[in-house]
Amino acid sequence: MTVELGIIEGFYGPLWSWEDRKQLVTTLEPHGYQFYLYAPKADAFLRRRWAEPHPQETGAKMADFARFCRKHGVRFGVGLSPFEVFNHFDDEARSALAAKLAFLDEIGVQELAILFDDMRSDTPDLAARQADIVHWVRDRTTVQQLSVCPSYYSDDPVLDRVFGERPRDYLTTLGELLDPAVRVFWTGEEVCSREVTPGHLKRIGRALGRKPVLWDNYPVNDGDRMSRHLHLRGFTGRPANNAAWLSGHAINPALQPILSAIPAITLADSYRLGPEYQYGQAFRHASREVLGGDLAEQVLTDLLTLQDAGLHRISEEKKQALLGIYRGFSNAGAGEICRWLNGDYQVTDEMVQTQ
């Protein structure tokens, strides 16, 4: 059994270029990736400034990317985070949201995800209010697929500590009230789950009354700590038989678009190969495809340093030596490694708090 694979560009930190996005779609198309959700936290007009219209130039580029995705058989979507709208869904908010929906329809969005994650609530009937908003959106958009990310999108207690204690029976209530055609994102037992099992997915599916879409926070590496590491290794802890309990599996990519393709390809391999999958071998094959043989061998040699040690544990002498090595490769993936070594991808706490 297979599952629909996709990309959710949902990280904090610097924005990718539109060419970066097109390259990732092209690279992953042969591996069965079927949808792409544009939802970077740094696009303020999808998040904290959602009620304002997108700049004209950005809108034109989004429309161009939508056409590009359709040409490649990929469903293009947008993740809209109407920031804390469930606290004040008044006439002004409705008017602004209607205008945003009209804009997204105009540029050719095929999937719309309403993202209620990473924001505080002071609304007691949170699930009911969010379901009402999603249904209000459903009645005013022409998209083929509507999805939602709950405020509490994982069992992880960190969400309760940061955003307030989740309401009693929140997930079950949301599932009962939502139109069955609306897909629901879920990250697993943790925000960044080390393992996702059929047993867990069965329980969440029962609570939601539908199979969830796994929002997989690997290989994402945003945040102050994670951005100091490159996430390159093949996927583990995602057995192929999860497919029976999922309606989709989307990965939140790393800050490095080219390097993100390596683990993304291994995820497709894990579903394709099932019990024959070997994450180390899958990494070797994927890195050669993305980087070419010589650079892939060099990355394998340095994997412990790049992924496990991280920037804060690399001496200046070692860093300069690595820069000297990777500057010798013409592949753009080597350029991403050099920029990471130079600290260009560092995500600060301020970014996370303000994006």
Rank of each mutant, 00 (worst) to 15 (best):
I8E: 12
E9R: 00
G10R: 01
Y12A: 02
L24I: 08
T26L: 14
T27W: 11
L28P: 04
E29G: 06
K41G: 01
A42S: 14
A44V: 09
R47K: 07
A60M: 09
F65M: 10
C69W: 10
H72M: 03
V74C: 14
S81M: 08
S81D: 06
F83R: 03
E92K: 15
S95T: 10
S95M: 11
A96K: 10
A98D: 12
A99D: 10
F103E: 12
L104F: 11
I107P: 14
Q110E: 09
L115K: 03
A127F: 00
A127L: 01
A128R: 02
A131V: 00
D132G: 03
H135P: 00
W136M: 00
R138F: 03
T141H: 01
V148N: 07
C149M: 06
C149N: 04
Y153W: 06
D155Y: 11
P157F: 12
R166E: 12
D169S: 13
L178T: 02
L178N: 02
W186F: 01
G188S: 01
C192T: 10
K202Q: 07
R206Q: 06
R206N: 06
G209F: 02
L214H: 07
L214V: 01
V220G: 02
V220H: 02
S227E: 00
S247T: 06
G248M: 00
A254K: 01
L255F: 02
A261I: 04
I265W: 14
I265G: 15
A268T: 12
Y271I: 01
L273G: 11
P275G: 04
Q278R: 13
Q281C: 11
A282K: 01
S287Q: 04
S287H: 02
E289Q: 08
L300Q: 09
L303W: 05
Q307D: 13
Q307F: 11
A309K: 11
A309W: 12
L311Q: 08
S315Q: 04
A321I: 07
L322Y: 09
L323G: 02
R327A: 11
S330L: 09
N331S: 12
G335C: 09
W340G: 05
Y345D: 04
Q346G: 14
D349Y: 15
E350A: 14
V352N: 14
Q353T: 07
